[in-house]
Deep mutational scan, measured.
Amino acid sequence: EGLCAVCGDNAACQHYGVRTCEGCKGFFKRTVQKNAKYVCLANKNCPVDKRRRNRCQYCRFQKCLAVGMVKEVVRTD
């Protein structure tokens, strides 16, 4: 048992190249599959942790990419 590289929640295994929780795994997968574009309403440096991970989708997705999650391994079929 480890911690999610994105939000610090409990994470049992790796998803898309990085140890993440189920919440961040699902968020990343949905974002890539929908080709979603998010906008940060602040300064693009919002805190992303277990308690606040749902407040800014833009910053959460940027953190997913920054920690090494790989868009190309998300299935789109």
Rank of each mutant, 00 (worst) to 15 (best):
E1A: 02
G2V: 05
L3S: 07
L3F: 10
A5L: 15
A5E: 02
V6A: 02
G8C: 05
D9N: 07
D9R: 07
N10S: 03
C13A: 14
C13E: 12
C13K: 14
C13R: 08
C13D: 10
C13N: 02
C13P: 14
C13M: 15
C13Y: 06
Q14K: 15
Q14C: 09
Q14R: 09
Q14T: 11
Q14W: 12
Q14I: 05
Q14E: 07
Q14Y: 15
Q14H: 06
H15I: 05
H15M: 13
H15A: 06
H15P: 14
H15D: 12
H15V: 12
H15Y: 04
H15S: 09
H15E: 07
H15K: 08
H15G: 08
Y16P: 07
Y16M: 15
Y16R: 09
Y16T: 07
Y16Q: 12
Y16N: 12
Y16E: 14
G17L: 07
G17V: 03
G17E: 07
G17T: 08
G17H: 11
G17S: 03
G17A: 09
G17M: 09
V18P: 07
V18A: 14
V18C: 04
V18L: 06
V18G: 07
V18Y: 15
V18H: 03
V18E: 10
V18R: 04
V18Q: 06
V18W: 02
R19Y: 07
R19D: 05
R19N: 14
R19H: 14
R19V: 11
R19F: 14
R19G: 09
R19L: 12
R19I: 10
R19K: 13
T20W: 05
T20L: 09
T20P: 00
T20E: 02
C21P: 00
C21L: 01
C21T: 00
E22Q: 13
E22F: 08
E22W: 05
E22D: 13
E22M: 12
E22S: 05
E22A: 09
E22R: 07
E22L: 09
G23I: 12
G23L: 10
G23Q: 05
G23E: 11
G23V: 11
G23K: 14
C24T: 01
C24V: 00
K25G: 14
K25Y: 02
K25F: 10
K25Q: 11
K25W: 11
G26S: 05
G26M: 04
G26W: 03
G26H: 14
G26R: 06
G26V: 05
G26Q: 06
G26T: 13
F27M: 01
F27W: 07
F27H: 01
F27S: 00
F27I: 01
F27G: 00
F27L: 02
F28K: 00
F28S: 03
F28R: 01
F28T: 10
F28M: 06
F28W: 08
F28D: 01
F28G: 01
F28V: 11
F28Y: 15
F28Q: 02
K29Y: 03
K29G: 05
K29D: 14
K29E: 15
K29N: 06
K29C: 04
K29W: 04
K29L: 12
R30N: 07
R30F: 10
R30H: 15
R30P: 00
R30K: 11
R30W: 06
R30Q: 11
R30L: 06
T31R: 07
T31V: 09
T31I: 11
T31Q: 06
V32T: 12
V32R: 15
V32W: 01
V32A: 15
V32C: 09
V32K: 02
V32F: 07
Q33R: 04
K34G: 13
K34R: 04
K34A: 01
K34D: 15
N35L: 08
N35E: 13
N35C: 14
N35M: 06
N35K: 12
N35F: 08
N35H: 07
N35G: 10
A36E: 11
A36R: 08
A36L: 12
A36S: 08
A36F: 15
A36D: 11
A36V: 10
K37H: 07
K37W: 12
K37T: 13
K37Q: 10
K37V: 07
K37F: 03
K37R: 08
K37D: 09
Y38C: 10
Y38V: 09
V39R: 09
V39S: 13
V39T: 12
V39Y: 03
V39A: 07
V39C: 06
V39W: 12
V39E: 09
V39L: 06
C40R: 00
C40Y: 15
L41F: 08
L41P: 15
L41R: 09
L41K: 06
L41M: 12
L41S: 09
L41T: 08
A42L: 07
A42S: 13
A42G: 08
A42H: 15
A42N: 02
A42T: 11
A42D: 02
N43L: 09
N43R: 11
N43I: 04
N43V: 11
N43Q: 04
N43T: 02
N43G: 05
N43W: 11
K44T: 10
K44S: 01
K44D: 08
K44W: 07
K44L: 08
K44R: 10
K44C: 02
K44V: 03
N45G: 03
N45I: 09
C46E: 00
C46S: 01
C46R: 00
C46G: 00
C46M: 00
P47V: 09
P47W: 05
P47E: 08
P47I: 12
P47R: 08
P47M: 04
P47F: 05
P47Q: 15
V48E: 04
V48S: 08
V48F: 02
V48A: 02
V48G: 02
V48W: 04
D49F: 05
D49A: 06
D49C: 01
D49I: 00
D49N: 02
D49Y: 06
D49S: 03
D49M: 07
D49R: 05
K50G: 10
K50S: 11
K50P: 15
K50A: 08
R51S: 10
R51D: 01
R51L: 12
R51E: 13
R51W: 13
R51Y: 07
R52W: 12
R52E: 11
R52P: 15
R52I: 05
R52L: 10
R52V: 11
R53C: 09
R53K: 02
R53E: 10
R53A: 13
R53Q: 14
R53N: 13
R53Y: 04
R53S: 13
R53P: 12
R53F: 08
N54G: 13
N54R: 06
N54S: 14
N54A: 06
N54M: 03
N54C: 02
N54Y: 15
N54E: 04
N54T: 02
N54D: 14
R55L: 12
R55F: 10
R55C: 10
R55V: 12
C56F: 00
C56R: 00
C56V: 00
C56W: 00
C56D: 01
C56S: 01
C56Q: 01
C56G: 00
C56L: 00
Q57Y: 06
Q57R: 04
Q57D: 11
Q57C: 09
Q57G: 09
Y58M: 06
Y58S: 14
Y58R: 03
Y58V: 01
Y58C: 06
Y58L: 02
Y58E: 09
Y58P: 00
C59D: 00
C59E: 03
C59S: 00
C59R: 00
C59M: 00
C59G: 00
C59A: 02
R60F: 07
R60M: 13
R60G: 01
R60C: 14
R60E: 01
R60A: 10
R60L: 13
F61K: 07
F61I: 12
F61L: 13
F61C: 01
F61A: 03
F61D: 01
F61V: 02
F61Q: 05
Q62I: 04
Q62M: 13
Q62A: 08
Q62E: 04
Q62D: 06
Q62S: 12
Q62H: 03
Q62V: 06
Q62W: 03
Q62N: 03
Q62C: 06
Q62K: 13
Q62T: 14
K63V: 04
K63R: 05
K63A: 10
K63W: 02
K63G: 02
K63Y: 05
K63E: 00
C64Y: 02
C64V: 00
C64G: 04
C64A: 06
C64M: 10
L65F: 05
L65C: 09
L65D: 02
L65R: 11
L65W: 04
L65H: 15
A66S: 05
A66F: 04
A66P: 01
A66R: 07
A66V: 06
A66K: 05
A66D: 14
A66W: 04
V67A: 10
V67Q: 00
V67G: 04
V67I: 13
V67D: 01
V67S: 08
V67H: 08
V67R: 06
V67C: 07
G68V: 00
G68D: 02
G68W: 01
G68L: 01
G68I: 02
G68H: 02
G68Q: 02
G68A: 04
G68N: 07
M69R: 01
M69E: 02
M69A: 05
M69S: 01
M69F: 10
M69C: 04
M69V: 04
M69G: 02
M69I: 01
V70F: 08
V70R: 11
V70A: 13
V70C: 11
V70W: 04
V70S: 09
V70T: 15
V70K: 05
V70E: 13
V70Q: 04
V70I: 14
V70P: 05
K71Q: 15
K71F: 04
K71T: 05
K71C: 05
K71R: 09
K71S: 14
K71E: 10
K71L: 09
K71I: 05
K71M: 03
K71D: 04
E72K: 14
E72C: 03
E72V: 04
E72D: 14
E72A: 07
E72S: 11
E72F: 04
E72L: 02
V73M: 10
V73F: 12
V73I: 13
V73C: 07
V73R: 08
V73D: 07
V73W: 07
V73T: 15
V73L: 09
V73K: 15
V74T: 02
V74S: 08
V74K: 10
V74F: 06
V74L: 09
V74W: 05
V74P: 03
V74M: 12
R75M: 12
R75W: 08
R75V: 11
R75G: 12
R75C: 13
R75D: 06
R75H: 03
R75E: 14
R75P: 11
R75F: 11
R75T: 15
T76L: 04
T76W: 08
T76F: 08
T76Y: 14
T76V: 11
T76K: 10
T76R: 12
T76M: 06
T76C: 14
T76E: 14
T76A: 14
D77M: 08
D77E: 14
D77K: 08
D77P: 14
D77R: 04
D77S: 07
D77H: 04
D77I: 03
D77A: 11
D77G: 10
